[in-house]
Design a protein around this nucleic acid. Structure first.
Lengths: 339, 339
DNA sequence: AAAAATTGTGTAAACGTTTACAATATTCTT
DNA sequence: AAGAATATTGTAAACGTTTACACAATTTTT
């Protein structure tokens, strides 16, 4: 019993393929008699429409491609959740792929997805969304989720990492820190740089005259611990630390406690990302939260508009969306003010 | 510039569509001259093959459908990671969808995916894999990931929840517990029942004569707390608790500590799932870990074999795979033995 | 130098749908 | 009860590929 086709169903129900197609697609211009004959023939033959043929005929796949650096883990999982929710509301399927930070793989994934989807939602950790334009037809609907604030030709959802970092620094200032440090992510990472820029901006705005104290980490817990050791070795440690991600904040926290320094009283700590662990550490760690669920949801809606809405089609009618992360205050920055 | 087709490229390169197709598909029976003309025409026109047409002609989509109860969160994320890794090794794309525990939605998702993929990997929290057979042609390649040990017609990866629970109980016995309790999941949940069965089996084997002490929770932290309150109200609490998932174990742990009961010295606690938080609680919680990454990976490989391997085609040549969860020992069960 | 084998290329028929359009059957007017 | 309007059905042409087959252009064999 190899997959029945429309024709098979038509033969079985003694009608034409057109009628079967109409029934299957739920059109109303068929008699009840025909409809029921078709329906029972279809279920008898276990007919499943061939998606490829369908999208060939309609030039619509009702599928959108999602390309993320990775498709698992706390962070991306949240984006996917947002995308998924929105997609099911719009009656779309999603086809996901991970680019694993590899450029060739990314290009490959895009090329092979592009032919099977109506549009794409992509998040590139490195390249500018424009580089996609060199591969894809200029009218291919694509929404880029980017960590860089991008002002180019539409289709861009950006996350203001720099602004988020700035919030963190302001907060450290607000709780009374006098001298702060940053545990950055790797130089090669775009978001890490944006967060560092935010740190520098905040320093300039709130801690005038202080030289930047930065330890370059690699987003691991271990890096957070290492940062503390370095800070301690070089004289009096700062009284506030902004880590470029939560794992490093966790590392810093545990290391500080190991050497007998109190958090938040001696040193306030704030991270970035709001991973679940931050709620369970002792003390819970303040952080900067990017609503990735929202990002995914809005991203897909945006793409959907591009697909459906004629108005939306021309790039100049559109404008990007910028997400400003929010500050989550927990105990790790609740200093007893000493002024 | 609306998506160029093979024909457009052929015209531009002054060759036939067949030659273009050959070049695009990397066949070697073309002269270098033709090849380069086609390639440059293709990139000039930003040609992207139409996946639908392709799969119509080849009856292969190189895509497999993945249907999970949800497609985000710690747990499913791990499965997806395994699937993704394996898929990229096999050169397959994945199309994911969440069934959200809703039967109609599940059926809908299956129907609409089935027409666009070469096979499916599905995890149904409730129904038996067999129910799919009523919808799908009998030769449709499908691998079910199931929580129930299933002996039917192949294509089944099962997770031995019962066996895992049994391990937990044995462990509680091994560390010297004398009287244990279970915080179960909701009755309506299949896995919850399997775990409860494991608990009962273990009780029978290691704690002969003890009446089962069970609190029915709902997998939330709050339920774990509530369980403790009930246990306390009803006389002397047990000295070992097996929670059907980690969140309830966390709730139980914190509640016990709030009322001044020491873990693990007074009460040992073990959870199920190995969510990351268990490593960061105080004390870290012992748990039972299902290698979902492995499950996903093996699941996809299994499906791939069904697709490729002629030998594998007939159901009787296949056998299912059973995953037995592993015990992760942490501090929450490190009792100081008092015997 | 002709015949045979090999290689490269093009033509055209699938693949399974959808959907104008034409044809027919039904219902409504008068 | 005939004609007009409408509702239902069927026919056939797309949609963009792949690929068997035929043909032409080579190269190898005699």
């Amino acid at each position: 019993m190899k997959g029945a086709t429309l024709k098979d169903v038509a033969r079985e129900a003694l009608v034409s393929v057109a009628s079967v197609s109409r029934v299957i697609n739920g059109l109303d211009n068929v008699t009840d008699d025909v409809r029921s004959r078709v329906l029972s023939a279809a279920s008898k033959l276990k007919y499943i429409p061939h998606g490829g043929a369908r999208s060939l005929a309609t030039s619509r796949s009702n599928t959108i491609g999602v390309l993320l650096p990775d498709i698992y883990g706390e962070f991306f999982s949240e984006i996917i959740r947002g995308i998924d929710q929105s997609a099911r509301e719009c009656g779309l399927h999603i086809m996901v792929s991970g680019s694993h930070g590899d450029l060739d793989e990314t290009v490959g994934a895009i090329r092979s997805m592009a032919g099977r989807v109506d549009g794409m939602l992509v998040m590139l950790p490195f390249a500018s969304p424009n580089s996609l334009r060199e591969i894809l037809p200029s009218d291919f609907p694509i929404v880029a989720i980017s960590s860089q604030l991008n002002d180019d030709n539409g289709g861009v959802i950006s996350i203001d990492n720099c602004g988020g970092a700035l919030k963190a620094v302001r907060h450290l200032h607000d709780v009374g820190c006098k001298r702060i440090a940053h545990i950055s992510g790797p130089k090669s990472n775009f978001e890490a740089n944006e967060r560092e820029n935010g740190f520098l901006k905040g320093l300039e705005a709130c801690f005038v005259g202080q030289d930047p104290l930065i330890f370059e980490g690699d987003f691991t817990e271990e890096a957070g611990r290492a940062a503390i050791d370095i800070f301690l070795k070089n004289g009096t440690p700062p009284d506030g630390i902004f880590a470029a991600n939560d794992m490093m904040a966790v590392g810093a926290l545990t290391r500080l406690q190991e050497v007998g320094i109190k958090v938040p009283d001696d040193v306030a700590i704030i991270g970035f990302d709001d991973i679940p662990i931050t709620r369970f550490t002792n003390p819970p760690i303040s952080t900067i939260r990017v609503g990735m669920f929202e990002v995914g949801k809005r991203g897909l809606n945006y793409l959907y508009s591009m697909l459906e809405d004629k108005e939306f089609q021309s790039a100049d009618k559109r404008s990007g969306i910028v997400f400003l992360p929010e500050l989550i205050i927990r105990t790790s920055t609740q200093k007893i003010r000493k002024m």
